[in-house]
Amino acid sequence: MPPKISIYNDYTTLSQAAANQVIALLRQKPTAVICLPSGSTPLGLFQELVAAHISGETDFTKCTFIGLDEWIGLGANDDGSCRDLLDKDFLLPIGFREDQITFFDGLAKDPQTECERVNDAIAKAGGLDLIILGVGMNGHLALNEPGTAFDTYAHVSELDTITKEVGQKYFNQATELKLGITVGIRHILEAKKAILIASGKAKAPVIQRALSLPVTTDFPASILQEHSDSEFILDKEAGELLQ
């Protein structure tokens, strides 16, 4: 089924639209399993969800969260780590319980065992009800870089040069990034619903390629063309090259 494409006037309205999907899901299924990204793109979404929590419009106490990815070599207490950002931007403001979230530990001595731990947690939870994704300039989804096989579950990823460069924006000083640990493309495909959010002119050619290219591991975001229920939630600038 081709992805649904929803284009909004600006970042604020796209964030509201994405938040409304999460709120609707929790209304329908309070115990939903939701895989969350960190970083700059979902900030607006998180602000909307925190506001919904404060107003009592939504209740996160019964749901399960899965972290999308993490930089190898960084832990939850390291400034700029994916867990650090997600804690500050969303989890702490909603008063989450630690037992509600499974998140990759970038400091784990055995990253492969860490991958298996997250795979098992997702399987035991009954799979992902919703996965929320951004998209990299090279088409990566989570830290599934170009060339990643589509049948992968959680795995260690060798970071693309573009990812290493763009990732620096989350740190106050130059930080060496070589490897990531991430949910796999197969997790994305098996999620009941996948939402990709993107904003700004820089993402317009990325979105165009994701939706128009033949599906290829060279551009991981293209796999969403084959998802059973995926949606691109964009602002006008990110969607400007779509017909």
Results as ranks from 00 to 15, higher is better:
T113H: 06
D79L: 13
Q100Y: 05
G39P: 13
N138F: 03
V135G: 01
T31L: 08
G136I: 01
N144S: 01
L91E: 10
G39L: 12
A125C: 08
L143Y: 15
H140S: 10
F60Y: 07
Q112Y: 11
I66L: 07
F104I: 12
E57P: 00
F171Q: 01
T58V: 15
T161N: 11
E114R: 11
D151L: 03
G167Q: 02
A76L: 06
C115F: 04
G95S: 10
F96N: 04
L86M: 14
V118A: 13
V166G: 05
F171N: 02
G167Y: 09
D120Q: 15
G80D: 03
W71G: 10
N77K: 13
E70A: 09
V166E: 05
F150M: 03
G95M: 07
A51L: 04
A52D: 07
E48S: 08
I34W: 10
G44Q: 10
A125L: 05
G39W: 11
E165A: 14
E98N: 14
R83K: 07
V156I: 13
R97N: 14
C63W: 08
W71L: 05
T64W: 01
E158Y: 06
D129W: 04
L74V: 08
K164H: 03
I34M: 13
D110S: 09
I131W: 09
E98S: 11
D129C: 12
F90C: 07
M137P: 04
G67P: 05
C115K: 09
F60T: 01
T58P: 11
A125Q: 06
D151C: 00
A51C: 05
E176D: 13
P111K: 02
A174S: 09
T41L: 04
I122D: 06
D87Y: 09
G167C: 05
Q168L: 12
Q47T: 13
F65L: 03
Q168P: 06
L45K: 00
N77A: 15
D160Y: 14
T148I: 05
A51M: 01
V33T: 15
D110W: 02
K124G: 09
K169P: 06
E165K: 05
P30V: 05
L143P: 02
G80P: 13
L159P: 08
D151S: 02
L107S: 03
G95P: 03
K164L: 01
G73Y: 07
S157M: 09
L36C: 00
L133R: 00
C35R: 02
L128Q: 08
L130V: 15
G134S: 07
M137R: 14
G136Y: 01
E116G: 06
T31Y: 11
T102M: 10
A32Q: 06
L45R: 06
T113Q: 15
L143K: 03
F96W: 11
K169V: 06
T113A: 15
L177I: 10
N119H: 08
D89G: 02
D120Y: 02
I94L: 12
I162K: 14
E48R: 12
D129Y: 04
L159K: 12
C82R: 08
M137Q: 14
D89V: 05
R83H: 08
A51K: 09
E158H: 14
P42A: 03
Y153Q: 04
C82H: 15
E98W: 02
Q112L: 13
R97H: 14
P37F: 02
L74W: 03
A52C: 12
M137N: 14
Q173F: 05
G139C: 08
L159Y: 07
P93M: 07
G126V: 11
K62P: 02
